[in-house]
Amino acid sequence: MGADRPKQFLPLAGEPVLLHTLRRFADPTLKVQQCILVLPQDQLEAWQQLCAEYAIALPHTVVVGGATRWASVRNGLAALAAHSTGVVAVHDGVRPLTSANVIEATYQAAYNHGAAVAAVVPKDSVRNLSQQGSYALNRARLRLVQTPQCFEIGLLRRAYQLPELSTFTDDASVVEDLHPIHLVEGDYRNLKITTPEDLLVAEAILTTFPI
C-alpha cells in the first residue's frame, strides 16, 4: 500500500477500514455470538487509540497474532475455547464491503456442509505459466476465493492441530485435506484493500452502491 500506517487503519469514507469490517459482522441480524480481532502486538495501541477516537463500542475481543496468517488464525481460534460447537468464520480485516447476504450464506453452507468459502468467477481471461510459455485456462472452472471462510469449529480446530505448510494460503487450504470445501457465491464488491486504487473503488461503492 505504501501508506504511513497499516492498511486496516487507513480511512475509508471517514472511518478506519477495520471499523467497517467489524461493523459487518456486528450486524444484529446475523446473530454472530462473538467477534475476535487478531492484530500484531505492535498494532494494539494504535487500535485502542482508534477505538477512543471513533467511539468504537462494537463488542469484540482483541487477540495478538502470530508470525504468519496460519499462526494468527490459530491464536484467534484459541480465544474461542468456550465454544465446543457451532460455525466459525475467518475473515480478512481489509474486506470491509462484505454483504450480510454473503456472510449469512457462507455461515449457512458451513452449517450444512462443514466447510464453506465465498468465491466468484474470474472476469478476465486466465493463463497458466509453464516452461514452454503459457496456456489458457477455462475460467468457467476457476474461482477467485474471498472471505468469509466458514467451518464447523471442531473441524477447523483439527485442521490447525496439523503442522503448518508453505502451501497454506488461506483457511480452506488448511482444511481441504480433512474435508471437502463447499463454494458459496461471493460478491464482486467484496474486494480486498491491497493497493491505493482499491480504497478509491471501495469508497465509490460505499457512496454509490450501498451494501
Rank of each mutant, 00 (worst) to 15 (best):
G2L: 07
D4V: 04
P6W: 10
K7T: 00
L10N: 06
P11H: 01
L12C: 05
A13M: 08
A13P: 03
E15G: 09
V17I: 03
L22V: 04
R23Q: 07
R24P: 03
A26N: 00
A26W: 04
D27I: 05
P28H: 01
K31H: 08
Q33N: 11
I36D: 07
V38H: 03
Q41T: 15
D42C: 10
Q43D: 05
L44D: 04
E45F: 05
E45S: 05
A46W: 05
W47C: 02
Q48R: 02
Q48F: 07
Q49N: 15
C51V: 14
A52G: 08
A55R: 13
A55C: 09
I56N: 06
A57T: 14
A57F: 11
A57V: 02
H60W: 11
V63P: 08
G66L: 09
T68R: 00
A71Y: 13
S72K: 12
V73E: 09
V73S: 07
N75Q: 04
A78G: 10
A79G: 03
L80P: 07
A82S: 07
S84N: 15
G86H: 11
V87Q: 12
A89R: 06
V90D: 11
G93W: 00
V94P: 00
P96F: 07
L97D: 09
T98D: 00
A100I: 08
V102H: 05
A105P: 14
T106H: 01
A109T: 05
Y111N: 12
Y111A: 13
Y111K: 12
G114R: 03
A115P: 14
V117Y: 08
A118D: 04
V121G: 10
D124T: 05
V126K: 00
R127T: 11
Q131W: 02
Q132H: 15
A140K: 02
R141V: 05
L144H: 06
Q146E: 07
Q149S: 03
E152C: 09
L156M: 07
Y160W: 06
Q161H: 03
Q161C: 08
L162M: 01
L165Q: 15
T167Y: 13
F168Q: 11
D171W: 09
A172W: 02
S173H: 06
D177A: 15
D177Q: 14
H179D: 01
H179Y: 14
H182M: 01
H182T: 15
L183G: 06
L183E: 04
K192C: 06
I193K: 12
T194R: 09
T194H: 07
P196N: 13
L199W: 05
L200N: 14
V201N: 04
T207D: 14
T207Y: 13
I211H: 11
